[in-house]
Every structure is written in C-alpha cells, then in structure tokens.
C-alpha cells in the first residue's frame, strides 16, 4: 500500500473545512448554514482519522466519534431554533436576525 503522506490528508481536510466555512458565510438560508457546519465538522473528522492512522493510534477515531456526537447535538439544537425562527419570522433568512448590534 502506498502510504499517503499525512500532510496531504491534512491539506484535504483543510480544503474541506474551508469549503464548509465559506458555506457558512455565504449562505443566507439557515438550513444551509447548519449543513455547512456539518461539512466543517466532518472535515475535522477527516483530519483526526488521518492523523490517528499516521500515528497508529485509536485516539483519532475516538475523537471522530465524539465529533459525530457533537454534530448531532448541534444539529438538534439548530433545527429546533430553525423551527422557532420559521414560526416567528416566516423566513429562514439569517440576515433578518440582526436586531442586536452597536
């Protein structure tokens, strides 16, 4: 098996991460923002798994499982708020939420 250098994995993870992040900042729809957050978290997961396998340790995978849990919890909360938002504002445009400022 050709060993893929760790740096490549990390760079891949970084690219994924950046894509996710760009999603967060460009999407107006709240649902897409939540999805982009998932992408970011999964990118981190890739990095952990890659690093874990490079060091031949289970730690990376453990972390990945923890991250999955986190992602689930976050999405649960996010969706709950999303419903609230839809109820109250009849819209999912995140830019509506800008009353607090200054």
């Amino acid at each position: 098996m050709i060993a893929i250098p760790l740096s490549h994995i990390l760079i891949l993870a970084s690219i994924l991460f950046v894509i996710g992040f760009i999603g967060v900042i460009t999407r107006k729809n709240t649902l897409f923002i939540l999805m982009s957050l998932e992408v970011m978290l999964n990118a981190v997961g890739v990095a952990f798994i890659g690093a874990g396998s490079a060091w031949q340790q289970a730690d990376g995978q453990v972390m990945f499982i923890l991250i999955l849990t986190l992602a689930a919890a976050e999405v649960a909360l996010g969706l709950a708020l999303l419903i609230q938002m839809q109820r109250r504002f009849k819209s999912l445009d995140i830019d509506n939420l800008s009353k607090l400022k200054g």
């Binding site: 992040f21 900042i25 107006k28 995140i94 830019d95 939420l97 800008s98 009353k99 400022k101």
Partner: peptide, 17 residues
C-alpha cells in the same frame, strides 16, 4: 470598531475566518 458590530451573523462568522 462600533461600525463593525453590525449584528449580522454572517459577518461575524466571516470575521472569525
């Protein structure tokens, strides 16, 4: 600095980046 506190979530996220 105050003008940076727009209240827009997407700007805040972008600012982090």
């Amino acid at each position: 600095l105050k003008s940076s506190q727009t209240g827009k979530l997407r700007w805040y996220a972008a600012a982090i980046g």
